[in-house]
């Protein structure tokens, strides 16, 4: 194996316990350099606990973990020196200016001051915040703070960039700006590792991902792979009105490959959604609304766990 092929993350039976509670229950993960890798899962799945172990800020309980081939228990500082981190909750210094936030953070890595200043300016440009560089962080919107945190995480020119729910809580426009920036990093060859509970985010940014649920990995593959493996090409969504969807389960039986009845809608999994809709009409059923869409990771998750991601 050449140095280039050495995985940047290698985890075997990785476990994290908090007291008796097992937040991460023996997961295996390999991430290659330059890859963008995602942990997709609902709240409480153990994504942040995993990310914190990878970031070298949380001791593992059992199993093995190697980052850049190093053991975080003994080489934590060295590993963190080569990582960029965007934690789930922003911890910027609200009273300092944007520029000072970046410089101070760069100084933690012992980057010379002049170099910090020039990198900080460059990165503020990259995240499109140059015009606010001497303003206080307190005055920024949530999306801007997130972008600043991303800039901060890049101050040490990391080989791998860890992002814990980079866009949670942001409005769609702010999310798209962020995705665009992350996409650029990916193109520059930075290894991206992110967690999300948005399937569109995972589809946009991840070459490969694992689906996590209750501390375990329940599936792994590229977004396309997972969709082909666990879902159909298309999905027909039918709404029969609040509380009435379950009644229709029997009458829909046999249409498409599979049915999933949710509180607010029925999902019909079929490779040809329009054909399935025609069959529904032929049976004389009249949903209040219907929609044919492509399958998403949401469907994969639903299939694997029986639950919706964003509940």
């Amino acid at each position: 194996m050449t140095a280039n092929e050495q995985p940047v993350i290698r985890a075997r039976s990785l476990t994290k316990k908090f007291g008796e509670f097992e937040a991460v229950r023996g997961i295996d993960v390999d991430v290659r350099p330059g890859e963008s890798f995602g942990f997709l899962g609902p709240n409480g799945a153990g994504k942040s606990s995993t990310m914190r172990m990878i970031a070298g800020v949380s001791p593992i309980t059992s199993g093995t973990l190697e980052i850049f081939g190093l053991d975080p228990a003994t080489h934590g500082s060295e590993i963190r020196n080569r990582l960029g981190v965007v934690p789930q909750a922003d911890n910027l210094d609200g009273e300092l200016t944007l520029l000072d936030n970046l410089i101070v953070y760069g100084r933690y890595f012992d980057i010379p001051r002049a170099e910090c200043v020039s990198r900080a300016k460059e990165l503020l440009d990259f995240v499109q915040l140059s015009d606010r560089s001497s303003g206080r962080v307190d005055s920024l919107s949530g999306g801007m703070k997130r972008r600043l945190t991303i800039a901060r995480g890049l101050m040490n020119r990391p080989e791998m960039f860890l992002l814990d729910e980079p866009t949670t809580g942001l409005d769609p426009q702010a999310r798209h700006i962020l995705w665009d920036r992350l996409y650029r990093l990916k193109q520059q060859g930075v290894t991206l590792v992110l967690t999300t509970h948005y399937m569109d985010e995972a589809e946009q940014l991840c070459d490969r991902l694992v689906v996590m649920d209750a501390g375990r990995i329940v599936a792994e593959g590229s977004p396309r792979d997972l969709i082909t493996r666990y879902s159909t090409r298309e999905v027909l969504e039918l709404r029969f009105g609040a509380g009435r969807n379950a009644e229709y389960e029997g009458r829909l039986a046999g249409i498409g490959d599979r049915l999933e009845v949710l509180a607010d809608r029925v999902l019909v999994y079929a490779d040809d959604g329009e054909a399935a809709l025609r069959e529904v009409n032929v049976r004389g059923l009249t949903p209040e609304s219907s929609l044919v869409r492509r399958s998403s990771l949401e469907d994969v998750f639903l299939r694997l766990t029986g639950r919706s991601l964003e509940e």
């Binding site: 800020v57 500082s77 963190r80 934690p87 012992d110």
Partner: peptide
């Protein structure tokens, strides 16, 4: 917490 994520010990 921000410091702890860097190379600082």
């Amino acid at each position: 917490e921000a410091m702890a994520a860097t190379r600082l010990t």
